[in-house]
Design a protein around this nucleic acid. Structure first.
Lengths: 249, 249
DNA sequence: CGCCTCCTTGACTTTCATCAACGACTGTGG
DNA sequence: CCACAGTCGTTGATGAAAGTCAAGGAGGCG
C-alpha cells in the first residue's frame, strides 16, 4: 500500500534538480537508516483521514497537499517543492489532515516523530530550520487565502505562478523566468479555486497579452514579471522575504 | 502607540469568560514579569509590515489576523479566540505577516522569543503545547481555504459559524448552541470572502429556514446544527478532532 | 492506428458584487 | 431629554465574473 522505496541512490539526469536539497542531505547524514521513497506522477501518497503520525520531506519533484469536500471538489492547500517539509500527522492527532498527491514523479523521506525529537545538537539545529519552514508555509497559505477570498481569477493565477516561480528560483530550478511546470490546468484550478475552463481562458488571455509564454508544452515562462506582480498585488522583494527562508549570504 | 497595559488583574464580570484560559495562567505563573495588555474593539494591535519579532497570546475577547491587497480588500486569515496563540514575527523575519485587529475588547500577552526558548522543563512542556496549537491553526486555515476555493456562499458561512461554535464550545463560552458574536456582517464577509451584502442575504435565508437565530442582537444561535454541517460539508466529530487540541479526559 | 488525457473555444446559466436607498440602533452633544 | 450623526443590517435592481455543458483538436502512448 505505501509507495515502494528504491534505495538511496542520488537523483541524477532527470533535469529537475541534480541532487537532493541540502536539508535532505543533512537528514540522510544524520540518520543513515532513512530510506528514500519514490512515487510516480499521479500517485496518492497519503489520503485525508488515513492514519498518519509522520512528517514528509520532499526530495525531488512536486507534490500537492489537498483537501476534498463531500461532493468531491478538491482544493490544493499547498504545493510542495524539493526540500519542503510537511507535517502529515502528529502523535496527538494521528490522522492525515490532507491528501498528498505526486504532481510529478517524486522522491521523498518519511520522518517519524522520534527522528525529529532527538537531543543531538545537530538535530536541535534542524528543528530550528523545520520551525522556520513551518512559518514560511503559514505565510504562503495566508497569501493564497487572501487571493482566494479577495482576488479575481487573473489575480489568483498570477499569484500562483509567481509563488511557484519565486520558490523555484530560490532552489535554482529556473532559467531566467522559465521553469518546468508539471501541473495540468485542472490541478492549477484546484490550487486557485477556479474551474479548469476558466484557468484556460485566463492563461490564454495572459499569453495573448505577452505576460506568459509556453516555450514548450511542459514549460512556462513569465515574460512580464512586473505585469504579473501588478495583477497579483505583490511587491516581489517583500514577497520573497515573506515566503522564503532567507539564506545567509 | 502600543495599547496600554492595565496590570494583571483577573478578568471578571464581563460575562465573556470568568478567568484567563489555563495556558495563559501557566505563562503568567512562569514569568511574573509578563503584563496583561488590553485593546478596545476595533483597535489595530499590529499592522502588516510593521516590525514585529514577538508572539501573542489572547486572554479574553476575539481578534482577527488579516491581510490586505493593494486595492484595500481585506481577508481575515484566522479568528483568534481566548487562549489562542499567534506567531506575529520571527527573529529571522521580524516583519508582521498579518494585521491583528481587536474584534471585541481584548486582553492579551506579548511573548518575546526568549520567553519561549528557555530551558525550564515547564517551558519545554509549554513549547509542546504551542506546537500543537500551531498545528490546529494550520488545520483551521486549511479548512477555510477549502471553503474559499470550492464552496458556495452558504457553505462558507455555515463553515465559519461552525468553526467558531466548535471552538467556543470547547472553551465553555456557549450555552447550548448560542454564543456571543462580536463580528459585524462586514467582518464576517472579510472572513468568508464575501461582500457584506451577500453575507446578510445568506444569513437571512438561513434564519428563514430555521437554521440560525438571533435571540438578541449580539448573540447568535445555531438552531439546526445538522443542516449547517450538511451545508458546510462537515462531519462534526471529525472536525472537532481536527481543529481542537484534544483535552485528556 | 486508436484511445485517452488535456487544452481550447463557444453558448448559456448561476452566483455574487455593486450601487443605492432606507430603517433600526447607539452614542453624543446640546 | 432630544435632535443628530454614524454605523450596521436589510432589501431591490442591475451587471460582471466565473461555472457548466458541450464539442472539437492536439499530443502522448500502447
Amino acid at each position: 500500500m505505501p509507495p515502494q522505496d528504491d534505495g538511496a541512490r542520488i537523483a541524477t539526469g532527470s533535469g529537475i534538480g541534480v541532487a537532493y536539497p541540502p536539508i535532505a542531505e543533512r537528514f540522510l547524514r544524520l540518520d543513515p537508516q532513512l530510506r528514500v521513497q519514490s512515487a510516480p506522477k499521479g500517485r496518492l501518497i497519503v489520503q485525508e483521514g488515513d492514519f498518519a503520525d509522520h512528517s514528509m520531506l520532499l526530495l525531488t519533484g512536486w507534490a500537492a497537499l489537498s483537501k476534498t469536500l463531500p461532493d468531491g471538489d478538491t482544493q490544493i492547500i499547498d504545493v510542495m517543492l524539493p526540500g519542503d517539509f510537511a507535517l502529515i500527522g502528529a502523535v496527538v492527532a494521528p490522522v492525515a489532515a490532507c491528501t498528498v498527491e505526486a504532481l510529478s514523479d517524486v522522491q521523498f523521506l518519511t520522518l517519524q516523530p522520534e527522528n525529529a525529537n532527538g537531543a543531538d545538537p545537530q538535530m536541535a539545529d534542524l528543528r530550528g530550520l523545520l520551525a522556520a519552514m513551518i512559518v514560511t508555509t503559514q505565510a504562503r497559505t495566508a497569501e493564497l487565502l487572501l487571493r482566494l477570498g479577495k482576488s479575481s481569477a487573473a489575480g489568483r493565477i498570477a499569484y500562483a505562478l509567481l509563488e511557484l516561480y519565486v520558490r523555484l528560483e530560490d532552489l535554482g530550478l529556473t532559467r531566467n523566468t522559465r521553469f518546468a511546470f508539471p501541473m495540468t490546468q485542472h490541478k492549477l484550478g484546484e490550487f486557485t479555486g477556479l474551474s479548469n475552463v476558466h484557468v484556460c481562458r485566463t492563461l490564454r488571455r495572459m499569453e495573448r497579452a505577452g505576460i506568459v509564454a509556453y516555450p514548450d508544452p511542459h514549460d512556462i515562462a513569465l515574460t512580464d514579471l512586473d505585469a504579473l506582480c501588478e495583477i497579483a498585488g505583490i511587491d516581489l522583494e517583500t514577497f520573497r522575504s515573506g515566503i522564503l527562508i532567507l539564506r545567509p549570504r
